[in-house]
Design a protein around this nucleic acid. Structure first.
Lengths: 252, 252
DNA sequence: GCAAAAGTGTTATGTATACACCCATGA
DNA sequence: TCATGGGTGTATACATAACACTTTTGC
């Protein structure tokens, strides 16, 4: 299920019709402020297809698995090639392999990723080698009808994100290096879709030991708020025994 | 990473060396009573390989993905062909795709499964089409050095099982149709590796609404214990949006 | 001063845990 | 009758939630 918009067919992709090919796609979440809205909303980048099947339809960024690269590497590479983005968090989501999900037989290893807001704009501007015309951001609650089974894949990724934010610390993957507790709370509120008590939220997150207070404050309209950074001593998310094999670090 | 012990090469498996092939394997857990041990222990069936690579080494049951079947179907099929077993619970675990995990490039979609004790013995006896000589059960804490990266895969499956038993009701997948609360508690104790308070366990599980009391009792050495059955109205595990597409039922 | 967000304190409620205790059966 | 596991009751600790309250800034 390749979605390399307009770039030439670089990677060796067996064209045979009687073989199962392996593709890698990624659902990339970030938070975007919509104008005149109180709360930022989850958004993701999609790539417009420029060939059949599903020509001209929006799809998840992705591409074929190269025979010389691991699945993780393929996810990061295809993501960069199609959108120019480098996520702060990347984790395998699920392998989709229904027979009829594509005209030819394709098994897609799908990843899901988190992006810091500053990385989101940077990626789409600075990089080259991809086609910015055919990359666009969509709010997750206002998606078009996508190619393949990508709508269902995004539904599943959203479910995983909302689940994981409850027992893990991945919300930091959506924030810049320094942030206030209100910033962090806003991330949780956007993902979970409900308001959280500022007082209780503070105690919970302070007691977890995942935050390091700085000496800096963000000044604004009201009382200055202390800036925190993430404590990298504690893992962003417990991936189990897999994490020990390929430790993943945020690029900062 | 096929492990079809001695059966002929039935499935079309592209022999080309410059192509990525897709295999499906399954980690099947069940509980087995070891003699003179107070608590049953987790065990899983392995298949002895009868060809290179890793000839004569034990490996997870599995086989090549057929081009006409879904991943789920391939997991169930290869499982039956190699071991004659039909699990009560089957869920995708992870896709393993390191470049060097096999001499040729193989991406393995790994499933994990639970088996009722009565199914465990039945499977290995009654079915045919597989080679019982090359299938054996091993305790999870006493595994040999396996083929490929299968030791790491089992570690990860164990981690997932122990995690999931905490927030899901999958323990029923390891029990017969009717069971006492002590049976169920024993399952939890075996998986988690620690004793649980019988009184608190009873209240917790009774309050969850997942059990239906029957009129029958198991009589034994002491006071008879009420038999329960699982309430199929509530899902065995919340698989998210994926469950709605392919509902999985226990064979009973 | 006033509004609004930062930050602290207090209390109610629910859940997990520990453990005392009674019940019912086989031997 | 006694040992043992089945089953009930209850006190304690801990996490969560609700909310009153003080602090600090911009306007």
């Amino acid at each position: 299920m390749p979605t390399q918009s307009s770039q030439p067919a670089t990677i060796a992709s067996p064209a045979a019709e009687d073989v199962t090919r392996v593709a890698v796609s990624t659902v990339i979440f970030t938070l975007r402020r919509t104008d005149a809205a109180d709360c930022p909303a989850l958004a993701l980048p999609l790539v417009r297809r420029t060939r059949d099947p599903y020509d001209d339809r929006w799809a998840l960024p992705g591409g074929w698995l190269d025979i010389t690269e691991s699945l993780d590497a393929a996810a990061a590479r295809t993501l960069g090639e199609t959108t120019g983005l480098a996520p702060s968090y990347l984790e395998q989501l699920y392998a989709f392999g229904a027979v009829d999900r594509s005209p030819t037989r394709v098994v897609s290893i799908v990843y899901w990723a988190l992006l810091r807001p500053d990385d989101a704009s940077a990626g789409l501007r600075d990089q080259d080698g991809y086609d910015p015309e055919n990359v666009a951001w969509f709010a997750v609650d206002d998606l078009p009808h996508l190619a393949f089974d990508h709508n269902e894949i995004i539904d599943y990724a959203l479910w995983r994100l909302r689940n994981k934010v409850g027992y893990s610390r991945i919300a930091h993957g959506l924030l810049a290096d320094e942030f206030t507790l209100a910033d962090l709370r806003e991330v949780y509120e956007s993902i979970l879709g409900r308001r959280l008590d500022p007082a209780n939220f503070r105690r919970q997150v302070e007691g977890s030991g995942t935050l390091l207070p700085t000496d800096r404050f963000r000044t604004g309209n009201h009382r200055p708020a202390r800036l925190y950074r993430y404590n990298h001593e504690v893992a962003l998310a417990d991936l189990g025994p897999l994490a020990r094999r390929s430790p993943r670090r945020s690029p900062s």
